[in-house]
């Protein structure tokens, strides 16, 4: 629903970088790999958290 606060595997705080990642790689046209390198999200476990995430608040909110 919302980006998890921490990486499931290693526990690094990744929620911190979500907004910038979203703006630059999802809505912008930058290469996600480069954005993640730039943000210092280096491990594969943390990168998959960002790459595979989907915000669902917009989907769920009408059914409140």
């Amino acid at each position: 629903m919302m980006i998890p606060v921490r990486c499931f595997t290693c526990g690094t705080v990744i929620g911190e970088h979500w907004d910038e990642f979203k703006a630059r790689a999802r809505e912008g046209d930058e290469d996600p790999a480069e954005v993640l390198d730039d943000l210092g999200v280096t491990r594969a476990c943390c990168r998959r958290m960002m790459v595979s995430h989907k915000d669902l608040v917009d989907v769920v909110s009408p059914y409140q």
């Binding site: 929620g15 911190e16 970088h17 979500w18 907004d19 910038e20 608040v57």
Partner: peptide
Amino acid sequence: DENIPIIE
């Protein structure tokens, strides 16, 4: 960290 989204 100040930019962790809690809930939209």
